[in-house]
């Protein structure tokens, strides 16, 4: 098995902040590796190291078999990068943006133009090709950005939160595009804070928190790893949720979570189910909803980190912003 991306023990400091604290990851050639984690976890920093934009303080990484520090120029000939902030020149038209990249990659003017036209067509931007990118919608910008990263026909593509801030429809469209890319044998490293996105697109997932990898595996492996199944109970009378939580807690041995009147807890032994039903009946609680299902990736994340993806994200937004701005 060959790896298009291999990173070992990456460490990167920004002043006092330890953005990467020993990140190891590998992506199989032709697969999609999902790098999952909240904002400020170190996803973007990892991508920036792998895409040769910054050098790690410690550790090493190879992309397409080349060292990202010693052979950066060769790595750059193999990769495409779509950053968190769409890296398109807003003052240029769609065509000009793509021609610019083509020319920088050494294409002749005519070649650059035809490659641009081809990509604009593919990403449904042909109608907007002669408009300045600043007039584009968020989804169009991301598509143009993705097109720009494909001008050089990269073997390895880095997508740093490609759908952050997009509406659900545009997000779905982008997912289709990513799926199409892997059909061509491109290796994709995709960072996301959306668990659903990693679930949908990734062959393998690494979960990053506080600059280190805290879990890795296929989406199914991760779901099984963290408790396997979830028991959910919704009492008809909302006030009963305290009683329900107590009973569920006693029987599952886990601290149940109550959200909007729904009591949920991870369950390792399905045989507990009948006991739960019996105890609830004895307690006189009428159950409106009772289910047993595979954990979602969000619950996996909760089980792994002790906090929900979104909560930490909000808390660290401010910090991440200030690091980015270099203030």
């Amino acid at each position: 098995m060959t790896f298009a991306i291999e990173a070992e023990g990456l460490v990167k400091h920004f002043g006092e902040t330890r953005a990467l604290n020993g990140v190891d990851l590998t992506a199989r050639t032709g697969s999609v590796l999902g790098v999952l984690g909240p904002n400020g976890a170190g996803k973007t920093t990892s991508v920036r190291v792998l895409a040769t934009l910054i050098q790690p303080d410690e550790g090493q990484a190879r992309v397409g078999g080349y060292d990202v520090v010693k052979d950066a120029h060769r790595v750059r000939q193999l990769i495409g990068l779509t950053g968190q902030y769409a890296g398109v020149d807003e003052m240029l038209t769609g065509t000009e943006n793509l021609v610019l990249i083509g020319r920088l990659l050494g294409l002749r003017r005519a070649q650059a133009r035809s490659r641009a036209a081809e990509l604009l067509e593919r990403f449904e931007l042909t109608d907007a090709r002669d408009r300045a990118a600043k007039t584009y919608s968020g989804g169009m910008r991301r598509r143009l950005d993705l097109a720009a990263s494909l001008v050089g026909r990269p073997q390895i593509l880095f997508l740093d939160e490609p759908t952050t801030g997009l509406d659900p429809r545009s997000r779905g469209g982008l997912w289709d595009i990513v799926r199409g890319l892997t059909d061509d044998g491109v290796t994709v490293l995709l960072t996301t804070q959306y668990l659903e996105e990693a679930d949908q697109l990734a062959d393998d997932i690494v979960v990053i928190d506080h600059g280190r990898v805290i879990a890795r595996g296929t989406p199914d492996q991760l779901k099984t790893q963290a408790g396997g199944q979830m028991l959910e109970v919704r009492p008809v009378t909302a006030a009963d949720h305290v009683t329900v939580a107590r009973i569920v807690g006693e029987l599952t041995g886990a601290q149940p979570e109550v959200r909007d009147g729904l009591v949920s807890a991870p369950l390792s032994d399905p045989a507990v189910m009948p006991a739960v039903v019996r105890r609830l009946d004895e307690a006189g609680v009428t159950v409106g909803e009772l289910s047993l299902r595979k954990s979602s990736l969000d619950e996996v994340f909760f089980a792994l980190t002790g906090h929900h993806a979104e909560e930490q994200q909000e808390a660290e937004d401010a910090q991440a912003e200030s690091v980015k701005a270099g203030v």
């Binding site: 934009l53 120029h73 060769r74 750059r76 990068l81 769409a86 890296g87 990249i101 920088l104 990263s149």
Partner: peptide
């Protein structure tokens, strides 16, 4: 730099 164009340029073999 703020719009990410600089990153895109620096990721190219130029």
């Amino acid at each position: 730099v703020t719009k990410g164009v600089f990153d895109r340029l620096r990721s190219l073999p130029i």
